[in-house]
Amino acid sequence: MPTSFVLPVWGAIPGGYPSPAQGYEDDPLDLHALLVRHPAATFFMKVRGNHLRSEGIRDGSILVVDRSITP
């Protein structure tokens, strides 16, 4: 029967080269904070079909709709 044992861990060591971008990380991107001005009047819709393709809106696009804004 094999014998099990525990090895101590003393910490982590760096492997490879550090990233040149290290230290320049931004906060996580919060799309809700960027796109929603009126939460009670805003909803999201997923487009089905390509009837708005000429406008750059394709099948599967997600639209942010704020019904408090006049088009």
Rank of each mutant, 00 (worst) to 15 (best):
M1A: 13
M1W: 07
S4R: 13
V6Y: 09
V6D: 11
L7H: 10
L7Y: 10
P8I: 04
V9D: 14
V9M: 10
W10N: 14
G11Q: 07
G11N: 06
A12D: 11
I13G: 12
I13C: 09
I13S: 15
G15W: 12
G15K: 13
Y17H: 13
P18A: 05
P18F: 07
S19G: 07
S19Q: 06
P20Q: 05
P20I: 07
A21F: 15
A21D: 03
Q22C: 04
Q22S: 14
G23C: 06
G23A: 04
G23S: 09
Y24H: 15
E25R: 00
E25G: 08
E25S: 04
D26A: 15
D26E: 12
L31F: 12
L31G: 04
L31C: 05
L31K: 05
H32L: 09
A33N: 09
A33C: 04
L35D: 04
V36A: 02
V36Y: 01
R37Y: 03
H38K: 03
P39M: 00
P39D: 00
A40E: 15
A41E: 09
A41Q: 12
T42A: 04
T42N: 08
F43V: 00
F43G: 03
F44E: 10
M45S: 13
M45Y: 07
V47S: 03
V47R: 11
V47D: 01
G49E: 08
G49S: 06
H51V: 07
H51M: 07
L52V: 00
L52H: 04
L52E: 10
L52I: 02
S54Y: 06
S54L: 14
S54W: 07
E55L: 14
I57L: 08
I57W: 02
R58H: 15
D59M: 06
D59R: 11
G60L: 00
S61Q: 03
I62T: 15
L63Y: 02
L63C: 06
L63V: 05
L63E: 06
V65F: 01
V65K: 00
D66L: 02
R67D: 11
R67K: 03
R67A: 12
S68Q: 09
I69K: 15
P71K: 08
P71D: 13
